Amino acid sequence: MRAAEIRECGRPPAVAERKPPVPGDGEVLVDVLAAPITPLDLLCATGTSYFGTPATPYVPGVQGVGTAGGRTVWFPSPAGMAPGDGSMAEAAAVPESSLVELPEGADPVQVAALGLSAVAAHMALVWRGELSAGEQVVVLGAGGVVGQAAVQLARTAGARRVIASARSPQARERAARAGADAVVPLDTADVAELARRFADAADGPVDLVLDPLFGAPAAAAARVLRPGGRLVNLGSSADETCPIESSTIRGKSLRLLGYTNNELSAAQRASSVAFIAGEAAAGRLAVAHETAPLEDAAAAWRRQRDGRAEGRIVLTPRPAG
């Protein structure tokens, strides 16, 4: 079979012929239809992640969509985090217990593009963030997959107003297409100026901030939270530290909450994936993405890594149909 291989950490994958995987006890063979190139894939392949340096060669791909036993399924993989191969191949051996069957009408590529990024947005909003109908939400970094999904999922969860923010004009356009009521530019690190922009865009105090950025944007968004408001942090794309004042936290008795998909149980993850796929199949959830054939994995990898892609790139080892 054809597969993408990481042969040397820090370099893009090369496409090669490999023996098809042989399923072990409790595993099934999945014919892969769609394999997204995610930030976690890129990080693990550098050899500098907290998971350590992966043994090479290995097939990357921490998640994918394919067919098994007549079903269309989403599946996870520990590739790059633990020994074993991932989704960027024509076939993958996957524990049957980790498969999530997708609803009829779900587009494999769109579900792959959403994947665990959308799961993070969903669970950070409704589980960790306890979003209630009628609340006002700020989504930071809303041009990325997590942010685009969060804007749409906040709306379907009943948020009365969703304020997005993003750095580049292209990212702000993606946030607007996702359905944000207002989009705030993040083109400065001036916390007071960003806070003013959020306040101008808001209809009164904000109830919940979804934050994959940290840094100055998070500090600014915290200033417009209502007393008892919540900020859920699930990333640090802007900075590893945040200049939030103690008086802001104490003065409003704010709740600062951390989130990671790693905290989810298998059942929670499967339930969220199924929900995400259902929303996508119903036409209520979509994110900007591109497709590329498996043969173009190296070029696609470089474009995703360098930020030159229009959204998430999804490799198609076995295009549907």
Rank of each mutant, 00 (worst) to 15 (best):
P95Q: 10
V287T: 15
A45R: 05
R269V: 01
E101D: 13
D25H: 13
P169G: 10
T188M: 13
D203L: 00
G258M: 10
V184G: 13
R196V: 00
G251N: 10
R230E: 04
N261G: 14
G307M: 09
L294S: 07
L210Y: 04
F214R: 14
V32M: 05
A189D: 15
P76A: 12
R18T: 14
A266M: 10
G47K: 14
A82Y: 08
I37E: 01
Q304F: 10
G258K: 07
P78W: 10
I313H: 06
G235F: 09
A106R: 03
R18K: 01
I244E: 05
A4L: 07
G228E: 08
L254D: 12
E90H: 01
E279K: 15
V32C: 02
L33N: 09
E5W: 06
P23T: 08
A221H: 00
G10H: 09
A180I: 07
G158E: 05
L116N: 13
A270K: 12
A93T: 02
A292L: 07
T56Q: 04
V151K: 03
P317Y: 07
G10Q: 12
R303E: 13
L285S: 06
P12W: 14
A113Y: 01
F275I: 00
G64I: 03
A92I: 06
A288I: 10
G70V: 12
Q148C: 09
Q152S: 13
T46N: 03
Y50A: 14
V139M: 07
A267G: 05
D107H: 04
P57S: 04
R167C: 03
V314D: 08
A297N: 09
D181Q: 05
A222W: 00
I276G: 09
L42T: 11
L29Q: 06
S246T: 13
E295T: 14
